[in-house]
């Protein structure tokens, strides 16, 4: 039995989203639709009544196998603003029986007639796995799987870029830091390439920026100055403290000296460059406090945009699920 391709797995027969697993295989039209819809939700967020009834009567389960406060909270807020009922489940997994407990958990939640699972898991491909093993009318939203993908984070970053720059073509974007372990960087690279920016530079030492990313359309820079020169957008990634143990880096201090974003290094970028970070920030490890809190930083806008993008994705996937159902009824 051959498994379906991710592309086919997340789209219904009309080419609409029914899951949101990865940006791989999604075209510019769908990505733009997500951004447009998020834009309209953003203006709604400024109003005093922030709710729309798009997910009324639907049960959304936040299924987090990995800890995350910010992502879970913004997903919860997004679902609630769409009038869904939301359940949060934080599930600790033992390394040995991961697969079994995952499937058992899913079967239980299915039996509770949930309509949507928002999943975060430490294994790459976990969201695909769940989409394949769930009853087909549950929408699966990937909130981060291993090193593989974090598509809503990437889309909120795209929204942030579009709102500040007004376009994608002609932009130069630098993503700096631990690319190897970053699902955010992978999804950002796919989004930026699809939306047609001029150049995506991945910046870091060889231990954290494997050469294979070049084949995915990125330019690799091992020198921060070359990487930041004339860029419009800088994305700093969080450096996990564990990376020192795996002999990937000598020390936080050396990393900061070579790749840290400070007021001095920021000057290499265009004067109107924006600085983004998926959070949480390690001040003094990858970014200085002055820059994080400075005029170029759009880090808090990212959080606001995150709610809007997640509302857009949740409502689109749910409508893709319903369209699919009615399509089947016609047959």
């Amino acid at each position: 039995m051959m498994r379906s391709e991710p592309r086919a797995l997340q789209l219904n027969e009309h080419g609409q989203l029914k899951h949101f697993l990865t940006l791989d295989g999604l075209d510019k039209t769908i990505l733009t639709e997500i951004l447009d819809r998020a834009d309209s939700f953003l203006s709604m967020g400024e109003q005093s009544v922030k709710k729309v009834p798009l997910l009324r009567g639907k049960t959304v389960v936040n299924l987090f196998f990995e800890n995350s406060t910010r992502t879970r909270t913004t997903f919860e807020l997004a679902a609630k603003r769409l009038s869904a009922d939301v359940i949060n489940l934080n599930i600790e997994t033992s390394a040995t029986s991961k697969g079994e407990s995952l499937l058992d958990t899913l079967k239980n939640l299915e039996a509770m007639q949930s309509d949507m699972f928002i999943v975060r898991h430490s294994d790459s491909g976990a969201a695909h796995f769940i989409a394949e093993h769930c009853t087909p009318n549950v929408a699966i939203i990937n909130a981060g799987d291993g090193r593989h993908a974090h598509p809503t984070q990437a889309m909120l970053d795209m929204l942030t870029i579009r709102r500040h720059k007004g376009r994608f073509d002609g932009l130069k974007v630098a993503i700096v830091g631990d690319i190897l372990h970053s699902r955010v960087a992978r999804s950002q690279l796919q989004a930026l390439t699809t939306l047609g920016v001029e150049e995506v530079r991945l910046v870091g030492p060889k231990t954290l920026v494997p050469k294979f990313f070049e084949e995915m359309g990125a330019t690799i820079c091992h020198d921060l100055e070359a990487g930041l020169k004339d860029v419009d957008v800088i994305v700093m990634l969080r450096l996990q403290k564990e990376r020192m143990k795996g002999a990937l880096l000598p020390s936080e201090g050396e990393f900061y000296r070579l790749y840290g974003l400070t007021e001095e290094t920021l000057a290499w970028a265009k004067p109107d460059a924006i600085v983004m970070h998926p959070g949480p920030i390690n001040r003094g490890v990858e970014i200085s406090s002055e820059v994080a809190d400075g005029a170029h930083s759009v880090i808090l806008n990212q959080v606001t945009n995150g709610i809007a993008v997640r509302m857009a994705v949740l409502s689109m996937a749910m409508s893709g699920q319903l369209q699919r159902d009615s399509g089947e009824d016609e047959k």
Binding site: K98, G99, L102, F129
Partner: peptide
């Protein structure tokens, strides 16, 4: 059967 019913790396 269960040995393969998991995300890729966990199989």
């Amino acid at each position: 059967k269960m040995a393969k019913i998991a995300p890729f790396a966990a199989t």
